[in-house]
């Protein structure tokens, strides 16, 4: 079994995001970055699958971006990924191009399963897994909260607006992770140190024969602010009174 886990570098969600005055980009100079939390869940699940299968599983973490994105690959290695691959891409690709690059990696590496986050918490698009499955003509199971191997495939519980849905998919497949799937482990100090020394393969887009085809152009960014100011009430009685007046 070979599992490909795409990993994205995103700003730490606990930080306040500011935008350049010209609206061109967020101010990232002093922001801490980390592995997208949904991708960490995907790495964790891959490691658990390998543990269940007595080790005969290879986990390949892949990211797309600049050299600094190696940090997130090292996080994945420290958590237990076997190999890591950086696809160097200097402009941040949109979801369509991320999916096209991942398709090229998938065709080269031939995994049985692509396990990835349902969304990246920076752009919140929730598109890449579905695009990739469509491009590969593979089945997909999005928003997974439980995975079980069954004959010739996977049984997946999916978090939907209506409730928990169960599907089976044949392999190879694309599965995207939801929060309830697992709680990612903290890497031990030894594995962090070991991951620092591991080598990371690098490709450029030309190696993968991918030329970017931009689809989603971001023209401008602005921060949003709450215009509300809180009026304090001191008792349940007063709150009920205010609600009545406001809604009459």
């Amino acid at each position: 079994m070979k599992i490909l886990v795409p990993c994205k570098r995103v700003p730490d969600a606990d930080q306040k995001i500011e935008v350049h005055p010209d609206g061109s980009a967020i101010i990232s100079a002093h922001l801490p970055f980390l592995l997208n939390p949904f991708d960490a869940i995907a790495v964790e699940e891959a490691v658990r699958i390998r543990e269940q299968r007595d080790g005969e599983t290879e986990i390949l973490a892949v990211t797309i971006g600049e050299e600094v994105c190696q940090d997130e690959l090292r996080t994945a290695l420290a958590m237990g990924a076997d190999r890591a691959l950086l696809v160097v891409c200097l402009q941040p690709p949109d979801p369509w191009n991320v999916a096209r690059i991942l398709r090229a990696v998938t065709q080269r590496e031939q995994p049985d399963l692509v396990l990835m986050g349902k969304q990246a918490v920076d752009d919140d698009s929730n598109q890449v897994g579905q695009f990739l499955a469509a491009l590969l003509d593979w089945p997909q199971a999005t928003f997974a909260s439980r995975l079980n191997f069954v004959d010739n495939g996977l049984r997946v519980a999916r978090e939907t607006d209506a409730g928990l849905e169960t599907v089976t998919v044949s392999l190879p497949a694309v599965v995207t992770t939801d929060l309830r799937l697992n709680e990612p482990r903290y890497a031990s100090l030894t594995s962090i140190l070991k991951a620092r020394k591991q080598s990371i393969d690098q490709f450029c887009l030309a190696d993968l024969a991918v030329e970017l085809e931009p689809r989603l152009e971001i023209r401008h960014l602005e921060t949003t602010a709450s215009a509300r100011s809180c009026q304090w009430v001191t008792s349940a009685a007063e709150l009920v009174d205010r609600l009545r007046r406001e809604t009459h």
Binding site: D124, S125, Q130, L135, R215
Partner: peptide, 17 residues
């Protein structure tokens, strides 16, 4: 997100969510 997202991948990926 699940169904139309996949259709977006079949239709060339020009998608905004």
């Amino acid at each position: 997100k699940d169904v139309v997202g996949r259709a977006g991948g079949l239709l060339g990926g020009a998608m905004a969510s």
